[in-house]
Simulated scan of single mutants.
Amino acid sequence: MCSRFSLDLDWDAIGADFKVEESDISTATLPSKTFVVKPKQNIGLIVETMDGTRHLRGANWSLIPRNSLTDNLYYKTHNARIESATKSPTYCESLDHMRAIIPASGYFEPHNRRPYYFHAPDDHVLALAGLYSWWRQTPSSPWKLTATIMTCAASGGTEKIHGRMPMLVSAGLRDLWLDPRQKGSEILERVHESAQRLSQRLQFHEVAHFSGDGPHIIQPINRESQASLF
């Protein structure tokens, strides 16, 4: 699972890193910097359309299937398990042709009711594998962009803290993952195998329970107990 993550990000830098033209960055829709974002809040999303154009814009973090009659679902959709996404009516359409990358500076997972923060060793941006959907309640309603984070079994040492983790997309597979002409169910295993290797480089440490917003949220409680995964 992943129900909290950090967005200590520069959106212009993210756009450049992910090959998004400046004119295709929807600055007004993107969230402000925050160190703990929760489901149903606004997040940043990188998508690619059939003509090869990439877009960076804000989205609601909880996917709403296109055929849903309401945005108030009785089940949670901020995460999609890779083990069942190919067969799930909620996610299968998005997995095939509406995949995304969700940038994050780090993410949180609980262990014995204590939160831990995971990040790259160089604090480089994490590319979380995501799915998206455009939804509107009626033909006259405005379209709403919604998204979910794909999760997989934890590996590379992260399972010491929690059994699940976001699936990471390596730099070498970004183009493949974002390409809507590629069928997601056919490339999922390849991206997953790469994510398992990538997870071995993650670092983590225990943090205090969330209070307010700011850099203090991601600071280790005790630096001497900080764990590293190499």
Results as ranks from 00 to 15, higher is better:
residue 1 M to Y: 05
residue 4 R to F: 12
residue 4 R to D: 13
residue 5 F to G: 02
residue 6 S to Q: 09
residue 9 L to A: 08
residue 12 D to Y: 02
residue 16 A to F: 05
residue 16 A to P: 02
residue 18 F to Q: 07
residue 19 K to A: 15
residue 20 V to A: 01
residue 20 V to N: 00
residue 21 E to N: 13
residue 23 S to C: 04
residue 24 D to S: 13
residue 26 S to L: 13
residue 28 A to T: 12
residue 28 A to W: 03
residue 28 A to Y: 04
residue 30 L to G: 08
residue 30 L to Y: 11
residue 34 T to I: 08
residue 34 T to P: 03
residue 36 V to S: 15
residue 36 V to I: 12
residue 37 V to L: 13
residue 38 K to Y: 15
residue 39 P to K: 13
residue 41 Q to D: 12
residue 42 N to P: 06
residue 43 I to M: 14
residue 43 I to A: 11
residue 46 I to V: 15
residue 46 I to C: 12
residue 46 I to T: 11
residue 50 M to V: 12
residue 50 M to W: 09
residue 51 D to W: 08
residue 53 T to Y: 07
residue 54 R to A: 07
residue 55 H to P: 01
residue 57 R to T: 14
residue 60 N to M: 15
residue 60 N to S: 14
residue 60 N to F: 10
residue 66 R to M: 08
residue 66 R to C: 00
residue 71 D to E: 14
residue 73 L to G: 08
residue 75 Y to R: 04
residue 75 Y to Q: 05
residue 77 T to A: 05
residue 79 N to M: 07
residue 80 A to Q: 02
residue 81 R to S: 12
residue 85 A to N: 00
residue 88 S to D: 03
residue 90 T to D: 00
residue 91 Y to D: 00
residue 92 C to A: 10
residue 93 E to S: 13
residue 96 D to M: 10
residue 97 H to Q: 10
residue 98 M to R: 15
residue 98 M to Y: 04
residue 99 R to P: 02
residue 101 I to S: 04
residue 103 P to L: 06
residue 104 A to I: 02
residue 106 G to P: 03
residue 106 G to M: 03
residue 111 H to S: 14
residue 111 H to E: 04
residue 114 R to E: 11
residue 114 R to H: 12
residue 115 P to K: 11
residue 117 Y to G: 08
residue 119 H to V: 09
residue 121 P to H: 05
residue 122 D to S: 12
residue 124 H to V: 01
residue 125 V to S: 10
residue 125 V to Q: 11
residue 127 A to I: 08
residue 129 A to E: 06
residue 129 A to D: 06
residue 130 G to P: 00
residue 130 G to N: 02
residue 130 G to L: 01
residue 131 L to G: 08
residue 131 L to D: 09
residue 135 W to M: 07
residue 136 R to N: 14
residue 138 T to W: 01
residue 143 W to H: 13
residue 143 W to F: 08
residue 143 W to V: 11
residue 144 K to M: 15
residue 144 K to I: 13
residue 145 L to N: 06
residue 146 T to Q: 07
residue 146 T to S: 15
residue 147 A to I: 07
residue 149 I to M: 10
residue 149 I to Q: 03
residue 150 M to S: 02
residue 151 T to K: 01
residue 153 A to F: 07
residue 153 A to Y: 07
residue 154 A to T: 10
residue 155 S to K: 06
residue 156 G to P: 08
residue 157 G to T: 06
residue 158 T to Y: 04
residue 159 E to P: 11
residue 166 P to I: 02
residue 167 M to N: 03
residue 175 D to A: 13
residue 184 G to V: 01
residue 186 E to R: 10
residue 187 I to N: 01
residue 187 I to M: 04
residue 188 L to P: 03
residue 189 E to S: 12
residue 189 E to P: 01
residue 189 E to L: 10
residue 191 V to M: 00
residue 191 V to L: 04
residue 193 E to K: 13
residue 196 Q to A: 04
residue 196 Q to C: 14
residue 198 L to Y: 05
residue 201 R to S: 15
residue 202 L to N: 04
residue 203 Q to F: 08
residue 203 Q to I: 06
residue 203 Q to H: 13
residue 206 E to Y: 04
residue 207 V to K: 01
residue 209 H to Y: 05
residue 209 H to F: 05
residue 209 H to K: 15
residue 209 H to G: 07
residue 212 G to K: 06
residue 212 G to D: 07
residue 217 I to N: 08
residue 217 I to H: 02
residue 218 I to K: 05
residue 219 Q to L: 13
residue 224 E to N: 12
residue 226 Q to N: 11
residue 226 Q to T: 14
residue 227 A to H: 05
residue 228 S to H: 13
residue 229 L to W: 05
residue 230 F to M: 09
residue 230 F to Q: 10
